[in-house]
Write a protein that binds this DNA or RNA. Structure first.
Lengths: 332, 332
DNA sequence: CTGAAAGCGCTAACAC
DNA sequence: GTGTTAGCGCTTTCAG
């Protein structure tokens, strides 16, 4: 394998000059540069980024800890992050945290060991006590994405509270009083905030929260399906339902279909998260759509700025959702 | 930052011993090991993987070049690959090739420079002439995934030809003769093979291929929608349609919905690729479902074996699809 | 069972 | 405008 020394020898210059030609880090005589470039061309030399990283103390690499790439929402998020990063000349290393503190720790550890220049994390439940402090101790720039945590770092995620409140309110405005909710994974901020939005809407209209109508889907489609199946098979069926993320929505819809309940005839339905192919679902879902592109791009922007040394106060950014008014809610 | 030397000093041993304790690469006296472990614990030492990689000449890293993480199919594939790899102690570095030779080259270059121990590539059109040979020149173990290419390396992808033929045949058996096809991106093997399957089915039944019924969706939803819109607005509408991947399916269905054409009433419809939420589409799609998990796991298995030095003849593995018989085809 | 020492391939002062 | 040199933090012979 050709090294920089080989190239230098062939071009009749020092390794240092080759390095500077490659990096544009200092002026090099045109004629010299040509010789170096010719040598590179001739040998097919490619610089060893590992050695470079070690010497330079910087890897041009950013780590992302996230869960469930299977979920198209996260897939799009990774995609958005990857693009923004690669535009800035960075490479992305992804690890799947499976939304569990345990595997999150492994992922973070490996990322830290690889000396990533920065880190973007969608924290699993409980990580503000374990993995996040660990990252902070190393001084690695860190931005939280999708969910928040109670730490002193930049965070960017979707607007949860008022979006969930609007969704719920929409059902109330249509006359519903018994409104079920299917929550996502417990312990993460988005779940809490969305649920708070649901509660706030009820409270605003003097409706008591009925514990029987609160379902925990654990962000797992099968669990959501089972829970909705149970609730809707019972005596005390709600007349409407709000689902708090796309996995919950798929589970809920499957359950409703199995029970042969019609939407919005038997239950009005609204959900947080939209689908690219929403148009093709039957019924067409009234939803709060996240702006994943913006979330990803913003996280990267904040991170790059921290990596450049910005040490202003942490920013907490909420990207608004868009209300997609379709017909599962039962309007017209 | 603590280094191995620091740990060694604190434990009163040499760096070499610390290294061996960490890697289990040679017998270390129990008492010595304890001291080393205590020092590691006390300092919160984490070994620098970059330095390790440089010294060891191996990064424990595998590169994946793929396109469009937005597409849930690719998202699942990445997920499957990531899991298999991380089980084996490797870390995944993903790059998005956008299915273009140009960006693929950048991705591969960066991966190669990072000295990945192996590479999994879903080749863009034309890369057997450019990027693939480049990888091969470096001697980096390589496995192609999803699509094939005319090179001497392991390849694993879904069964295309006979799956597409079965889908088409199913429509023929139902009496259709004018069957349109929406193809994916030109120049990649999966597109070609699936189209060949379509043609074979027609030929087997003595049906001539009508060029007007061949649509190129370029694996882009919007293009597919436009193409289908045009075809179905014309005079010579087909009575059935087969869509060759999920992006094409979404585009086609959108178009049909816009034209208010019913499935299977106005057009019978079958497609390659299934959706997790297929049950929720209206109509429910008759489809050939890929086994993404198996494809991902197999690719990793082959790669790891090559990385261990296996130099047997290249394997070409086809993972069968599952025929999901639902009602968009118009049976029953 | 343990240590010394020579790199891995590059970057970045520092010197001229 | 260019070269010399000292590392970056680890692995791995080679000795003992």
């Amino acid at each position: 394998m050709t090294t920089m020394d080989d190239v230098a020898r062939i071009a009749g210059v020092s390794a240092s000059t080759v390095s500077h030609v490659l990096n544009g880090t200092r002026k090099v005589n045109d004629e010299t540069r040509q010789r170096v470039e010719a040598a590179i061309e001739a040998t097919g030399y490619r610089r060893n980024v590992v050695a470079r990283s070690l010497a330079a103390g910087r890897t041009n690499t950013v780590g992302l800890s996230i869960s469930a790439l299977t979920n198209p929402y996260f897939g799009s998020l990774v995609h958005a992050v990857e693009r923004a990063l690669s535009d800035a000349g960075y490479v992305l290393i992804v690890g799947d945290s499976h939304d569990q503190a345990e595997s999150e720790k492994r992922v973070i550890d490996s990322l830290l060991g690889r000396k990533v220049d920065g880190m973007i994390v969608a924290p699993a439940a409980g990580s503000e006590r374990t993995t996040l402090p660990e990252i902070m101790r190393t001084g690695t720039p860190l931005v939280l994405i999708d969910r928040g945590a109670d730490i002193d770092r930049d965070q960017v995620g979707p607007e949860n509270f008022s979006s969930a409140r609007s969704l719920t309110e929409h059902l109330i405005d249509l006359g519903h009083r018994r409104i079920a909710v299917v929550r996502g994974l417990a312990g993460i901020s988005s779940t809490t905030e969305r649920f708070d939005g649901y509660q706030a809407a009820l409270a605003d209209h003097g409706i008591a929260v009925d514990p029987d109508l609160i379902l925990d889907g654990e962000s797992n489609t099968d669990v959501a399906e089972r829970e909705v199946l149970t609730l809707m098979s019972g005596a005390n069926r709600p007349t409407a339902m709000v689902s708090m993320n796309n996995a919950m929505t798929i589970g809920a819809l499957k359950a409703l279909r199995r029970l042969d309940l019609s939407i919005p005839g038997d239950v009005a339905f609204v959900c947080y998260d939209d689908f690219e192919w929403s148009d093709l679902f039957e019924p067409q879902l009234t939803a709060a759509a996240q702006d994943v592109e913006t979330i990803g791009a913003t996280a990267v922007r904040l991170l790059l700025s921290r990596m450049r040394g910005d040490d202003g106060p942490p920013q907490l950014i909420r990207v608004p959702t868009t209300f997609q008014h379709r017909n599962s809610c039962g309007c017209a």
